[in-house]
């Protein structure tokens, strides 16, 4: 019978209040945002928090905007909102690609960007997407705000740098010219977690790769990224041959584990194949030549 164990419930009225509640209730308390990971885990009694601190009233964590030359996405932005965001479409289509394949409309209507990142599921899609974009996470605690690069945000499966009494408040992605980005995912069925997925962001200077980011999902890539493949591409020509080689390099460095979604060799193959495909589409977008 899937019913949760008993817990206390608090409704936060602001970020400072939420932090105070986290401080008061300690490590056995959990923030609840969309609840689409936490509540099922509680019903299965995999998670048994003593206190839920509801942050759904925190309007200061909502909204998508361009602020100080960066795309700012509030932690409480729902997946559906990011999926439909004209700013995301314009600047970072990788986010729209990723959102389109996250779960289903019911989950996307409720689940949040911050919730996904903080859940830190190795198969979660946005972590790789923000990693590819060289995004920055903004975390607030009692002593104020701090910024952490997306690729330093995760410390392991289901683990992040966000402290017990801290809240992820927003994600920022610096906007630079010449960018193109894309996300490619293989799933067994629509709405399933990724068997593997690859995201790529390119900043082209003519035909040269000025900057590049590659994010990989569910293939055991440390911090969701592929630095060796990025290093290979950076400063070189953006060609099909080099994208294929980057895929090969990315595949070489991942550490996938077999599960019912697929064996290790297949996931390693996908890491390469999807890296190459994402790079190809990102380049086409950067050139404004996507079919």
């Amino acid at each position: 019978m899937q019913v949760p164990a008993q817990f206390d419930y608090e409704r936060a009225t602001g970020v400072r209040h939420a932090i105070a509640l986290l401080t008061r209730y300690g490590p056995e308390s959990r923030l609840v945002a969309g609840g689409h990971s936490l509540i099922p885990m509680m019903k299965l009694r995999i998670a048994n928090p003593e206190t839920l601190i509801d942050i759904n009233d925190l309007d200061e964590l909502t909204g998508i905007s361009i602020t100080d030359g960066a795309l700012r996405i509030g932690a409480m932005v729902r997946h559906a909102e990011l999926l439909d965001s004209p700013l995301a479409v314009e600047h970072f289509p990788i986010l729209v690609d990723a959102e389109r394949v996250i779960a289903d409309p019911v989950v996307r209507n409720r689940g949040t960007i911050g919730g996904s990142l903080c859940q830190a599921d190795p198969s979660e899609d946005l972590s790789a997407a923000f990693t590819a974009l060289h995004a920055v996470a903004v975390i607030e605690g009692e002593s104020g705000r701090r910024e952490v690069p997306a690729r330093e945000f995760h410390t392991g499966p289901y683990q992040t740098v966000v402290g017990d009494a801290e809240i992820l408040v927003e994600v920022r992605v610096p906007i630079r010219t010449g960018s193109g980005s894309a996300y490619e995912k293989v799933e067994r069925r629509v709405g399933d977690w990724a068997v593997a997925a690859g995201g790529a962001a390119l900043w082209l200077d003519g035909d040269t790769v000025g900057e590049v980011g590659i994010g990989l999902t569910a293939v055991g890539a440390a911090h969701f990224c592929a630095p060796q493949a990025e290093d290979f591409l950076r400063g070189g020509p953006a060609t099909e041959e080099r994208f294929a080689e980057a895929g090969r390099i990315a595949a070489e460095h991942v550490r996938p584990t077999a599960d019912q979604r697929g064996p290790e060799d297949y996931k390693r193959h996908l890491a390469g194949e999807l890296t190459t495909r994402a790079l190809r589409r990102a380049a086409a977008r950067a050139r404004g030549s996507e079919a």
């Binding site: 293989v186 068997v195 979604r261 697929g262």
Partner: peptide
Amino acid sequence: LTPAHVWR
């Protein structure tokens, strides 16, 4: 015939 199985 999942994607992994087809590929294999």
